[in-house]
Amino acid sequence: MQQDLTEAFVELIRRASTDLPPDVEEALREAYNREEEGSAAQSVFSSILENVTLARQHSTPVCQDTGTPIFYVHYPFGWSTLKLREQIRTAVQEATRRSYLRPNAVDSLTDRNSGDNTGQDFPVIHFEEWEEDYLQVDLTLKGGGCENVGIQYSLPDSRLKAGRDLEGVRKAALDAVVKAQGQGCAPGILGIAIGGDRGTGYEVSKEQFIRKIGERSDIPEVAALEERLKEEANSLGIGPMGFGGKTTVLDVQIGAAHRLPASYFVTVSYMCWACRRNRMIVRDGQVSYQ
């Protein structure tokens, strides 16, 4: 008999929505320290940090746009994904009732808001069976402002003089940051996918947001590109909210997927500074959060 995790999922959502992961908060604090005393940029970081503290104290959403809930479920052999899906959907409804989530699911044809954050393909749930003996669920909440500045490039791109190589990826990624300016609630985190088809490109780019800030790719060339892009994006001077400043991105994280010989997509997803994520582990019936 599989245990009922509905209440555990509600707690996962509460934690994700009303607090930031320690690594993200630390990156924001470092960004605050880098900016000049009395500058507009420093004022933004001060407001952001104060807002996070208040949200945590009051258990209220860090941002009123609680975004698309995206669940990544890794489950051991024998678990029913049917039951997990049902429990996640019920938990999302309950979390909306408790105001951890704003009603955010709108019927694209009738414009009607379902009022409880469930609907067609909403929330988003990815299931993957694995060889571990425990259940792991990662949740990210991705707001609309930053989702709107996501972009996909098909290389080669003659405007950017970007070819089908890591140098081309670099040019496309920097172009995406310049296009976004402050609109995605900078400083953001760039999740980049190299390759895949158009659909998996966006999926892989968003999976990067599960990684901790500063966690580098296992592939040395990709890790080097992540570092370089972070430094170069920050030299653009866009700054928090686009006011100018030293921090335009908090990090850059890159994944890759196999592609067709004919295609070379570079997909850039943008996560706002309010990078809300949390992880739940269920081992031997015990639930813990990270």
């Binding site: 952001i48 009051h58 959403p61 500074w273």
Partner: peptide, 11 residues
């Protein structure tokens, strides 16, 4: 005047 996007609780 630009407010801080996302700073909903603080505002």
């Amino acid at each position: 005047l630009h407010a801080v996007g996302g700073a909903a609780t603080l505002i």
